[in-house]
Design a binder for these strands. Structure first.
Lengths: 254, 254
DNA sequence: TTAACGATTAACAAATTGTTAATTAAAACG
DNA sequence: CGTTTTAATTAACAATTTGTTAATCGTTAA
C-alpha cells in the first residue's frame, strides 16, 4: 500500500480475564467470594527463540492481531488457547496507544475484558508465550511489576467491571445458570459498596422484584437449594430483560 | 522493527462531533432543540493530487494518527483544524477494525465522540481533506451514503450519547455555563424518552434537588432569566458532583 | 429439645414518584 | 389599567419505594 503516512509496528489484543473465586466457609454457609484476574508470566524467549520483551514480567494475556481478523476475534482465539473456553462475552473497553508504551515500536493495544466461571479457568494452560499463568486478587495484581502499561489497563478494566456490574446484568456472567440470592449478593459485593446490596433485609426484599431475575420453578413449585444454608433458599435465574437507569429519574447515592 | 507478525497499513482517528441546535420558536418561548452531527464531504483528490478513496461521500472527520501522538491527540488536532475549537472533552467509544473496512488495506479506526456548542461550530472550515462540512440531523445523516463503515460508527456513537446522557452529566457539554431548567429539559429530550423528564411537574420538582446542578445566586439572591419566558426562570449550573446509579438500587423504567 | 443461623418476612416511618390541579409573573392586547 | 396568555413553578395527595429494626421460619447439629 502506498501511503504518505507512517504505519503502526503492530496491533495487539489484550484481555483482562476476571473471575470470582469461592472459598468454602464451612458447611451450610455461603462461601467467601473474591474477584480475581488471570495473568500470564511472559516467556524468556519469543516464538523464534530470541529474548522476549518484558520477559518474566506478569502481563495480561493477549497477542498480535492478524490481518485477517478483528481484535475481538484475536481475543477469542487467545482466550481459547489459554483457557480452552470459548463462547464468552468479550467486551472492548479501551485502546492504549501511547507512542512510548512498547519499546519495540509503535504498537497499539486494543483492550478487552471477559468474565469467566471459576471452573472454566481450572484447566488454564501456558502456551509458548507464557511460562506461568495464575489468578491474582486485584490487590496482588496491582502490586506486581507488570509488563508494558498493563497496570493502567488493569486499573481501567476494574473500573469498567464496577461500572458494568452496577449498570447492567454483568453479574450474570459470574454466576451459574441458577443461583440463590446470597450468591448474587456475594458477587455484587466483591466490587460494589452499597448498603442497598449489603443490607440483607433491603437486598432480599428488593431482589425478587428486579425485572431481570426470576424465581426458578419446578413442577410449578418454587425450586430451592440448601447448598449454602440449612434453610432451603429460593433459586433464581437472569431473564433477558435489559434494565435502564437514569440520573434524572432515580435516587442517587452519597 | 523486526517482527514476524504483519503490521497494519494505517491507524486513523475518527470523531463524531455532536451539537444541539436551537431554533427560535417565537419570543419568550423555549427554542426547539435538535441533535445534529457534523460530517465532511470527502475531497476528490488526496493530499498528493491522487484520486481520493471514498471521494465525494460524507464521512466522519478524522485522519491518520501520526507515530508521535495518540488517537486522542490526533482527534484534538483534527477537531481544531476543522472547527477552530479545542479544550473539548473528546471521548473514545470504540475501535473499528474489520479487515475489509477500507479498500486501501488493513486500517484500524479509533472512534471518538465530542460535544460542541452550537456556536463553536459556526466557524467550521473545510481543510484539504474535505470539500464541504455540514451539520445533519441524525435521520439525515443515517440516510446518507456514508464512507467506509461510518454508518455503523455513527449508529454506535448515537447509542453512547444516549447512554451517557442518561448516566452522566453529559448534558452539561450541550449547555451554556448557566441555563434554565427548560433548556436542560430540551437538551435531554433530544435523545431521551422518559416521562420523568418530559412531564413538566415531575421534572421541575426533581431537577432542583439533583446533586449535580445548583441554583445560581447573585448577591445572595436567586438569579433569574427571562430569555425564554415572560416569567423569570431560575438559572442553574452543573456542579462537580458525579452521580452514581445502580440497577440494584433504583426503580427501573418499563 | 433446643441452640444456631441463614433466609426470609413484617412493620412502620420517611422519602420519592405519578398525576392532576392551582398559582405566579411578566408581556401583550384592548 | 384590566384581561389574557404562556411558561415556570408550587401544591396536593395517593401510590410506591426505601431505610431500619425486629420478628419468623426451616433445617441441621448438639
Amino acid at each position: 500500500m502506498k501511503n504518505k503516512f507512517q504505519t503502526p509496528d503492530g496491533y495487539t489484543s489484550d484481555i483482562a480475564v476476571f473471575t470470582i473465586t469461592s472459598e468454602s466457609n464451612g458447611e451450610y454457609r455461603p462461601p467467601i467470594k473474591s474477584l480475581k484476574i488471570m495473568l500470564i508470566k511472559r516467556s524468556e524467549q519469543d516464538h523464534e527463540g530470541n529474548p522476549n520483551i518484558e520477559a518474566g514480567k506478569w502481563a495480561l494475556p493477549g497477542g498480535f492481531v492478524q490481518p485477517y481478523e478483528t481484535a475481538l476475534q484475536a481475543a477469542e482465539r487467545k482466550l481459547k488457547e489459554e483457557t480452552g473456553v470459548d463462547g464468552l462475552r468479550i467486551k472492548h473497553f479501551g485502546v492504549y496507544d501511547s507512542p512510548s508504551r512498547d519499546k519495540r515500536g509503535w504498537i497499539i493495544s486494543n483492550a478487552h475484558y471477559v468474565i469467566a466461571n471459576e471452573s472454566s479457568l481450572k484447566n488454564r494452560k501456558t502456551t509458548y508465550d507464557a511460562q506461568d499463568i495464575q489468578l491474582f486478587s486485584m490487590e496482588e495484581a496491582l502490586a506486581l511489576n507488570l509488563a508494558f502499561d498493563h497496570r493502567s489497563i488493569i486499573d481501567d478494566a476494574l473500573w469498567f467491571i464496577k461500572k458494568d456490574m452496577a449498570l447492567t446484568t454483568l453479574a450474570k456472567h459470574f454466576l451459574p445458570e441458577v443461583f440463590v440470592l446470597s450468591e448474587l449478593q456475594g458477587v455484587l459485593l466483591t466490587v460494589l459498596d452499597d448498603p442497598a446490596i449489603s443490607t440483607d433485609a433491603a437486598f432480599f426484599r428488593k431482589a425478587p422484584t428486579l425485572p431481570f431475575i426470576e424465581a426458578v420453578l419446578e413442577n410449578g413449585k418454587p425450586k430451592k437449594s440448601n447448598a449454602y444454608s440449612k434453610t432451603p433458599a429460593q433459586l433464581y435465574r437472569f431473564t433477558d430483560y435489559q434494565p435502564i437507569v437514569s440520573v434524572y429519574r432515580n435516587k442517587l447515592k452519597g
